[in-house]
Amino acid sequence: MNIKICLPEFGNEFIGEIEKFGKIRKFENNEDIINQGQLISYLPIVLNGLVKVQSQENGIQFLLYYLKEGSACIFSFAHLFSPRASDFSAVSVGETEMLLIPMDKAKDWLIRFPVFNTLILNEYQKHYDDLLQTTKQIICYKLEERLLSYLKNKSKFHNSKEFLISHRSIADDLGTTREVISRIMKKIEGDGKIKQQNRKIFLIV
């Protein structure tokens, strides 16, 4: 993926710096990008593909947000001025290409390139909204409503009403068990809101 195509607003001078000091890496499907507990040494930006950012507490794994093309991980940025073990993990969803920016360069570029500040602030706002919506769903909505909202968001990410995902993956993202998800999926299928075929889901609503 050409960095200029993915991040055209960065300009030639900044792109030149990124090409000189940044690193582009490709990840296969379901490959670990950041492991919970490791020290963060770079700021990742998605050039192509999709990344799932999640966390685990007391053996329960739950989804934080997704990163799409042109998005940066704000949780990594939070470690920029306070190096410590990460309290989250990131994994690729399908083949994914990432731009990895060294943390020392990220600090320098925040001062030298205002457009980089704009990117980070926009990402903070976007993922703050995501996390706020997730919190509202946990507090105010039943699991069935959360599941339908989750499936609709999945559909948007894939740009299709049809996509592949296992009940186990859904359960991990929503912080519940596979058995509970399977039971609710069967119910909403009976309600005519989805269709299932093996791991393939067809969203109707």
Rank of each mutant, 00 (worst) to 15 (best):
K4D: 04
P8K: 03
E13H: 12
E13W: 05
F14Y: 10
I18P: 02
E19N: 04
G22L: 03
R25S: 09
I33T: 00
N35W: 06
Q36V: 04
Q38F: 09
L39Q: 08
I40C: 10
Y42A: 02
L43T: 01
L43D: 07
L47C: 13
N48I: 00
G49H: 01
Q54S: 14
Q54V: 00
S55P: 01
S55H: 10
I60E: 13
L63G: 10
Y66K: 02
L67V: 10
G70H: 10
C73I: 01
I74L: 04
A78G: 03
A78E: 05
H79R: 14
L80I: 07
P83A: 02
P83D: 02
A85F: 08
A85Y: 13
A85L: 03
S86K: 04
D87K: 05
D87H: 08
F88L: 02
V91P: 01
S92Y: 08
T96C: 07
E97Y: 03
M98N: 07
L99H: 05
P102N: 04
M103N: 09
A106F: 13
K107S: 06
D108P: 00
W109D: 02
I111H: 15
R112K: 14
P114K: 02
P114T: 06
N117E: 11
H127N: 05
Y128H: 03
Y128D: 06
Y128E: 09
D130H: 07
L131T: 11
L131F: 09
L131H: 13
T134W: 15
T134C: 14
K136N: 14
I138Q: 15
C140Q: 11
C140K: 12
Y141M: 03
K142V: 00
R146N: 12
L147R: 06
K152W: 15
K152H: 14
K156C: 06
F157Y: 14
F157P: 00
E162F: 10
L164F: 13
L164G: 06
I165V: 07
I165A: 02
I165H: 02
S166I: 01
I170N: 10
A171N: 14
D172P: 06
T176D: 11
T177W: 01
I181R: 09
R183C: 10
I184W: 09
I184D: 13
I184T: 12
M185R: 02
K186Y: 15
K187L: 09
K187Y: 04
I188P: 02
G192F: 15
I194W: 13
I194R: 12
Q197A: 12
N198D: 11
K200L: 15
I201S: 12
I204V: 13
V205E: 12
V205K: 12
